[in-house]
Design a protein around this nucleic acid. Structure first.
Length: 480
RNA sequence: GGCGGCGUAGCCAAGUGGUAAGGCAGCGGAUUGCAAAUCCGCCAUACAGCGGUUCGACCCCGCUCGCCGCCUCCA
């Protein structure tokens, strides 16, 4: 039984979808006005493993992750700086070109990290009618009001406001740093849609004039459009609990009268060398930068070695450690060779394969304890190596390989293979070099063989002499 | 000021009311022409500190200290 920590109740509870075996997941996607960074990686890798695991457990998952391509104003901004529009000015492109460019960049990075594509990646700009409809419904029910061209959600009209983030509306005023918009009836009210001024490019026609939707609205509209009024799991970053998710759930439930999300999952933040990573702090590391230093799978494993609800600090030491650990998995994969599905005969010496898988899924069931699961995986790696040392037949070896593939590849999403060849002819050339080295060693021309190994190492290739006289030459991708 | 989280070996990081998974690094050994990989052994009387509950707590409660997040756009 999968158990998940729900922010709304603060408890870790058994997960039960509204209508099993279907399960709907909505995860807040990126605002596409820049390259993705480490924070995106942590968040989306975590939810990717959740989706993979749920599918393995037999759920029919529909994974929806929005693309925010509507440049929301910050709520009370006087400057009218729309993130997309500002970036468009900088790059001398149309705002929609910016959105397209960084949407592609985002998917490219996520693909490299091994994340499965969401089943639906709805664009906010493509769901303006749904958002307008939601605003209209909220006005009708008395939860929203028009003020000129703006429409605000009336926080006091919804008694549940504050439950998700554990805040009381009365407390919010005390420490609030926000300036109060003059046309709000209550300082706590938030915008459902805003009137666009003349300079605003991204705007749409609505019953209240030309404007654009409020920040929280798109998620409500798209989540309900594709997953129904009650969704099973809503995920996102911890920093979005308030005000984004608080407002999102309030406006959704106010509109439908139903529970919006059965489980709220929030992943913790990324720090770099102990410091908060933030765009405003200037220490945000883009994934494209990181991929030059560490291969994507190293970053993926590093992320999975910590829990999604714990903060994750990126450091060179940690990433190097993950690179070594990944190598251990890969070395085993190449020792084991092709795989068969996991089904060792009972009472066989391969009992440990199923035991490992059981322990592994047990860890993931416990609120996605990926560090625990990774620990099980490495226990398994050692056991496989022990078996290999003792000598195993191809059949059992394929079963062990199947176990590795199930845990490491299918569920954790780590691709077992090293970096792909840099050219079509590389494998051929490496094969020839390997034969050549074997021949040199056979003739005891060690100086020549070692010189060859040194030269290859300098060029970024590892040479391992396998039992039986063969040599394995592989390209190493690692830190510069 | 309000709300929340965290503090486990050199580094990273799980975990259970009954005496500490795993990874990396390190050390010793096996194997190897030498390596690499792999295997074996070693590596926290200790889980921030101080009290309390308990037969017994790292895990429950209280306090203290330290770090961090949110309350403003951010995964």
């Amino acid at each position: 039984m999968l158990r998940l920590h729900d922010t709304m109740t603060g408890a870790t509870r058994d997960f039960e979808p509204l209508s099993p075996p279907s399960a709907g997941i909505y995860v807040c996607g990126p605002t596409v006005y820049g390259d993705s960074h480490l924070g995106h990686a942590k968040s989306y890798v975590s939810f990717d493993v959740l989706v993979r695991f749920m599918r393995h457990e037999g759920y029919r998952v529909r994974y929806v992750q929005n693309i925010t391509d509507v440049g929301h104003l910050s709520e009370n901004s006087e400057t009218g700086d729309d993130k997309l529009q500002r970036q468009a000015r900088l790059e001398r492109l149309e705002p929609m070109e910016i959105a397209e460019k960084y949407t592609r960049s985002y998917f490219e990075d996520m693909d490299r990290l091994g994340n499965l594509r969401p089943d639906i990646s709805p664009r906010a700009s493509g769901h303006i009618p749904e958002q307008i409809e939601l605003v209209r419904a909220l006005i009708e029910k008395g939860h929203a009001y028009q003020a000129g061209g703006n429409v605000y959600f009336s926080v006091r009209s919804f008694p549940g406001y504050g439950r998700l983030s554990g805040r009381r509306p009365d407390d919010l005023l005390a420490g609030a740093r926000v300036e109060v918009q003059a046309d709000k009836r209550d300082p706590l009210d938030f915008a459902l849609r805003k009137e666009a001024d003349a300079g605003h490019i991204l705007k749409w026609r609505s019953p209240w004039g030309w404007g654009f939707p409020g920040w929280h609205l798109e998620c409500s509209a798209m989540a309900m459009r594709y997953l129904g009024e009650t969704i099973d799991i809503h995920g996102g970053g911890l920093e979005n609990v308030f005000p984004h998710h608080e407002s999102e759930t309030a406006q959704s439930e106010a509109a439908t009268g139903r529970q919006f999300a059965r489980f709220w999952l929030h992943n913790n933040m990324v720090t770099i060398d102990g410091q908060k990573m933030g765009k405003s702090l200037g220490n945000a590391r883009s994934l494209k930068e990181m991929f030059d230093l560490y291969e994507p799978m190293t970053i993926r494993l590093y992320i999975l070695r910590s829990h999604y609800r714990s903060p994750l600090d990126f450091s060179d030491e940690g990433l190097s450690s993950a690179a070594s650990a990944l190598g251990r998995i890969r070395d085993l994969a190449s020792r084991l060779g092709p795989s068969d599905p996991v089904s060792p005969p009972p009472d066989s010496a391969l009992q440990f394969v199923e035991e490992a898988v059981t322990a592994f899924t047990g860890r993931l069931s416990d609120d996605l304890d990926t560090p625990g699961a990774v620990a099980v995986l490495f226990d398994y790696v050692r056991k496989c190596n022990q078996a290999l040392e003792a000598g195993v037949e191809p059949g059992p070896r394929a079963v062990m390989s199947g176990g590795l593939s199930l845990m490491a590849c299918e569920m954790l999403g780590l691709s077992a293979r090293a970096a792909s060849a840099s050219s079509d002819t590389e494998p051929l050339l490496l094969g020839l070099l390997s034969e050549y080295r074997s021949m040199l060693r056979e003739r005891k021309l060690f100086a020549e063989a070692d010189g060859m190994r040194d030269a290859l190492a300098a060029g970024g290739y590892s040479v391992k002499d396998m039992p039986g006289g063969r040599s394995l030459i592989e390209r190493i991708s690692r830190a510069l």
